[in-house]
């Protein structure tokens, strides 16, 4: 099994997000960056598929600035074989990222491209579907279970109130959802081994964004809440307030 895993460097979910003064992006000061949590499921699945097949490779790809090397090293420490950083400081949109990834992937041999279902910075949930389209491959998003038998694959895709069972052939693109597996932590041995694994940096030009961010603002805070009382004695008042707002 040869897999390509697309990973993104994003602010930690704990991070307090402040909009930069120019209103064009966020202020990175004091923000800790990590591998996008959903990409860990994608990477874990690729490593497991290789282990189960007893042969193959796991290549990690990321479009980002120089600092992205850190998360690529983490991926190598988890068990990826090689990493490629498509390096650029230009900003683009999801489609621009998908194009840069597709251009790199086209020149490679692979059975499966794995992505996270969504990046927790832009919250787009777009790149995997776009990649499927740009590469002309089957694509299944929000995958919680994946079974591969030769060139045939069956995935369970999370939908409202249940799962869709989806059949497709390899090669294909899959977007990983939580529940697909339990990602491993890099072992000490893995961290040492990662230092010797190849990490290639390629400069790329990114397409002009088709979606432009006109402004970025912190959301209006919620009006200060009210504690209406303690224990069961507060219940009639709570119900009265909810009825007043025609909620029940």
């Amino acid at each position: 099994m040869k897999s390509i895993v697309c990973i993104k460097r994003v602010p930690d979910t704990e991070a307090r997000i402040r909009v930069a003064r120019d209103g064009a992006g966020i202020d990175p000061a004091g923000v800790k960056y990590v591998m996008n949590p959903y990409d860990e499921f994608a990477l874990e699945e690729a490593i497991r598929l290789k282990e189960a097949a007893g042969e193959g490779s796991v290549t990690v790809l990321s479009v980002g600035s120089g600092e992205t090397s850190e998360i690529l090293r983490t991926a190598l420490a988890m068990g990826a074989d090689e990493a490629v950083l498509l390096s650029s400081t230009e900003s683009t949109d999801g489609l621009g990222i998908a194009r840069a990834l597709a251009d790199e992937i086209r020149g490679r041999e692979f059975d499966l491209v794995l992505c996270g279902k969504q990046a927790v910075d832009d919250d787009d949930m777009a790149v995997p579907s776009m990649l499927g389209e740009l590469l002309g491959l089957p694509c299944v998003t929000v995958v919680v279970a994946l079974a591969i038998d030769g060139r045939r694959a069956v995935a369970h895709r999370e939908i409202e109130g249940g799962h869709e069972v989806v059949e497709f052939d390899l090669p294909a693109v899959v977007g990983a959802q939580k529940g697909l597996n339990e990602p491993r932590y890099p072992s000490l041995k893995g961290i040492m081994a990662a230092k010797k694994k190849p990490l290639e940096v390629k400069e790329v030009r990114l397409a002009e964004p088709k979606l432009r961010i006109a402004s970025l603002e912190e959301p209006p805070g919620r009006a200060e809440g009210e504690i209406i009382g303690e224990g069961t004695e507060a219940v009639p008042e709570l119900v009265r307030r909810l009825r007043e707002r025609a909620l029940i």
Binding site: I17, V120, E208, K210, I213, A214, E217
Partner: peptide
């Protein structure tokens, strides 16, 4: 964006 920690206004090229 950022799980609702920021709101973006976007336009289309």
């Amino acid at each position: 964006m950022y799980a609702g920690k920021a709101m973006a206004r976007v336009s289309f090229a």
